[in-house]
């Protein structure tokens, strides 16, 4: 690279100490994560075992997909509050299809994906075309999709599903369940897309400065539409996996999941104003939350106290990130 080095004396006098502290500051969340892991490993003999790692991954999988969709939406400066309800509506649609269309795993899958896509597309259309603020649009969809979920089941869960319905969550390949594999694939694919493709660059651009992006030839409406549609599809898949694990369609499934997804994205260092954040960051944030959940369970902390501790850790983690970012800029 042949660009001239600017006259910033601090940056020319780099020594080891600065490099090391710079590295720590840039990867502060990984450090926080390791500290938490070390704490749980010290306190519980069952924490640092392969079985428990698998448990954490299985618990993380349904959150992973919606957190990844949420990452794209938040990068554009928006937010998708509807993902939890869309999960429920998709799961109910899949369960209904399974009871009425015989013992095929394909049709419920199609039903879940189509439901998610439909909900996401409606969000995307309203946000991009009619310029209704995303918060309002997706808040409306949250209520609407939840209503649909109850309508499909006539207010009750759908039980007695064929065994094939359980195959999504319970099939194992190389010792990992399908949802875990899907999570890993989704993280890798989206990390590549956001870092190495036109689409990724454009998402960052409209989140950073929509007008400037449009002037540089980005069709911002199309991009905006797409992130909500993707978030919807991922919520649909995630709803199906959650329902499949217990082979039941429950209309209250996924309730409140949107908040954990948003928390994961924000812990991962994304800005709610858009333009800043990474897929890797979200993956770390997601694992952090799930590790805390799992560790507190193992330590037999009562459920209500778990929420209190989790709340404190989320704000503290982001606080550390903000502090590190400010130091890093200096």
């Amino acid at each position: 690279m042949n660009t001239t080095i600017d006259v910033l004396p601090a940056l020319q006098r780099r020594d080891w100490k600065e490099l090391a502290s710079g590295f720590l500051i840039r990867h502060i969340m990984v450090v926080v994560m390791l500290l938490i892991v070390a704490f749980f490993a010290y306190r519980s003999a069952r924490f640092a075992t392969p079985d428990n790692l698998t448990n954490i991954l299985i618990a993380a999988a349904p959150f992973a997909l919606i957190a990844l969709g949420q990452t794209l939406v938040i990068l554009t400066g928006g937010i998708d509050l509807s993902v939890g309800s869309v999960m429920a509506a998709s799961a109910m649609a899949a369960a209904w299809t399974a009871t009425n269309a015989g013992d095929s795993p394909m049709l419920p899958l199609v039903a879940a994906v189509v439901t998610g896509l439909l909900a996401g597309s409606i969000n995307g259309l309203i946000v991009s075309k009619f310029e209704v603020p995303p918060f309002i649009t997706t808040l409306g969809m949250l209520t609407l999709a939840s209503g649909i979920a109850y309508v499909i089941g006539n207010g009750a869960p759908i039980n007695g599903l064929p065994a094939s319905f359980g195959s999504f969550a319970n099939t194992q390949i190389l010792g990992l369940t399908l949802p875990v594999i899907l999570m890993i694939i989704a993280i890798l694919v989206l990390a590549f897309v956001m870092k190495r493709t036109n689409y990724g660059l454009r998402v960052y651009a409209i989140g950073g400065n929509r007008l400037a992006a449009e002037i540089a030839g980005v069709r911002s409406r199309n991009i905006l539409f797409s992130v909500y549609a993707i978030s919807g599809v991922l919520a649909g898949l995630s709803g199906l996996m959650l329902a499949s694990r217990v082979i039941t369609g429950a209309p209250n499934l996924g309730q409140g999941y949107e908040l954990d997804a948003i928390a994961a994205v924000v812990i991962g260092g994304a800005s709610l104003m858009g333009g800043r954040g990474t897929v890797w960051g979200t993956a770390i944030g997601l694992l952090l939350i799930q590790t805390i959940n799992n560790g507190l369970d193992l330590l037999l902390v009562p459920a209500y106290w778990q929420n209190v501790i989790k709340g404190v850790i989320i704000v503290a983690a982001v606080g550390v990130d903000v502090w590190a970012a400010r130091r890093g800029r200096r």
Binding site: T3, T197, N198, Y199, L201, R202, Y204, A205, G207, G208, N209, L211, A212, A213, I215, A216, G217, V218, G275, R276
Partner: peptide, 26 residues
């Protein structure tokens, strides 16, 4: 407000207007 995306790098800003010329299949 309209010229540059300040949160992006020099490289990414400079790629944006001619993005198609720098990519294959997206």
């Amino acid at each position: 407000g309209a010229g540059a995306v300040l949160s992006m790098s020099v490289l990414d800003n400079a790629t944006l207007p001619r993005i198609a010329a720098f990519s294959k299949f997206g």
